[in-house]
Design a protein around this nucleic acid. Structure first.
Lengths: 226, 226
DNA sequence: TCAAAAGTGTTAAGTTTACACCCATGA
DNA sequence: TCATGGGTGTAAACTTAACACTTTTGA
């Protein structure tokens, strides 16, 4: 045991819980798992993990995300700390929630399977363990507040996407319909959303132009409003 | 020692740090203290404290605020958890930052003195311990994002205030000048900012009408934009 | 009498919203 | 040939921003 100036004060388990958002079939989804350990094994929960002794809390969130998806270096945003005394029935645990946005096609499905993780629609979430529903609500609120000014929502889409997809994504996140022409007008003024020569023929007969997010362009003018 | 499902996992000291904002002489201020214990005793820091075993983290923040100001039931908002491995040189501590807004006249000055606490202008902060500057930056960012939609800023003013004071407060928080006529026009449309019969003769020769925040009115129509 | 803060409306510019039809194609 | 999603422009309503002078009174 190393000496400490603070040894008279109590210590607590500290965990991170990850709200992993995806977008599929016009719906915003979250990756949930059947809790693999006691207490309350088998209940729906967020993927979480205890912080390690020599690990930043942000690193812990990245590690947990990696364990479940196989993805590294994903942008994660802290939602906040949840620390009521009895929030976890196993013991006192202070948990810090983070959210991430992923293209569902990029996640490693074997890892998902290993962890009994499933994508569930935000519109019909199952009952969740502890305060995990609150964490998701907090994450969604933060996400909604951010998408108008940060380009994070593109993380949810494949590298090439149609404007209809992009609009459906914004509608799913904001939970409201957007006027198609107004949406396209605003998008067309953003230099970092680039038309490509590719045409998507999967979702429509006529074919839709595919667009791409241009990071370099975004870095030149990182202020926008959508 | 109670049994625990999680006893194999490490535990950490968990603290709260409070960013206490006040408003005086047209400036936004923060209550800072000279750290009263080792390590780094005497350096400028936020007022903080370790979370207790049977205490919610929100309660811990309220307790620390009370110790320093003598005030109960103050609205506090969580800024977030700070948890890099070496943020505190005394030992590993995960700290959760909260901010509060207070009318400087209401705080107990003896308690401030006991804790070597002083109001420092946000425009010329001293060098702060650890990551406390980051915490303040995070709090200010959150505060700025909130004041357009939440009536929290009134906590910084005395019960009766002039429109010039209110405008100066908004300017201090947002860090930019606001047009006087536009500001007053918007305020006059808010039903919960009420004119009183009182006149303030302290800050101007002519005298300025004193206004008051009407909580009941606000609860009826809690949506606004300023 | 003058310095200092209080109070007061209008107009132009910009932004946001509402709205409906034709196009291309595969089934 | 028709059902499906793709694509396009304008006008009205609303919101925001810019702007300058008169009032009151204590020193």
């Amino acid at each position: 045991m190393a000496p400490s100036y603070y040894s008279q004060y109590p210590k607590f388990h500290v965990a991170v819980d990850c709200i992993i958002f995806g977008f599929e079939q016009g719906e915003l989804k979250v990756l949930l798992q059947k809790r693999p350990f006691e207490p309350r094994r088998g209940e729906w929960s967020l993927m979480g993990g205890f912080v390690k002794r020599d690990e930043d809390i942000d690193q812990a969130a990245q590690r947990v995300l990696f364990q479940l998806t196989g993805l590294h270096d994903i942008y994660m945003k802290q939602v906040g700390a949840f620390g009521t005394v009895s929030r976890d029935s196993g013991d006192r645990v202070i948990s810090i929630a983070y959210f991430a946005l992923l293209d569902i096609d990029r996640v490693n499905k074997d890892l998902n399977h290993e962890h009994s993780a499933h994508w569930e629609s935000m519109n019909q979430l199952p009952l969740l363990l502890f305060d995990h529903k609150e964490m998701i609500d907090g994450a969604l609120k933060k996400l909604r507040a951010m998408i108008g000014h940060c380009p994070i929502s593109f993380q949810l889409l494949p590298p090439l996407f149609t404007l209809t997809q992009l609009q459906a994504l914004y509608e799913a996140i904001l939970g409201e319909k957007i006027d198609k022409r107004n949406f396209r007008k605003r998008v067309s003024e953003l230099p970092f959303i680039e038309k490509t020569d590719n045409i998507d023929k999967v979702t429509s007969k006529r074919g839709a132009v595919l667009y791409r997010f241009n990071t370099a362009m975004f870095n030149q003018e990182p202020n926008f409003k959508l």
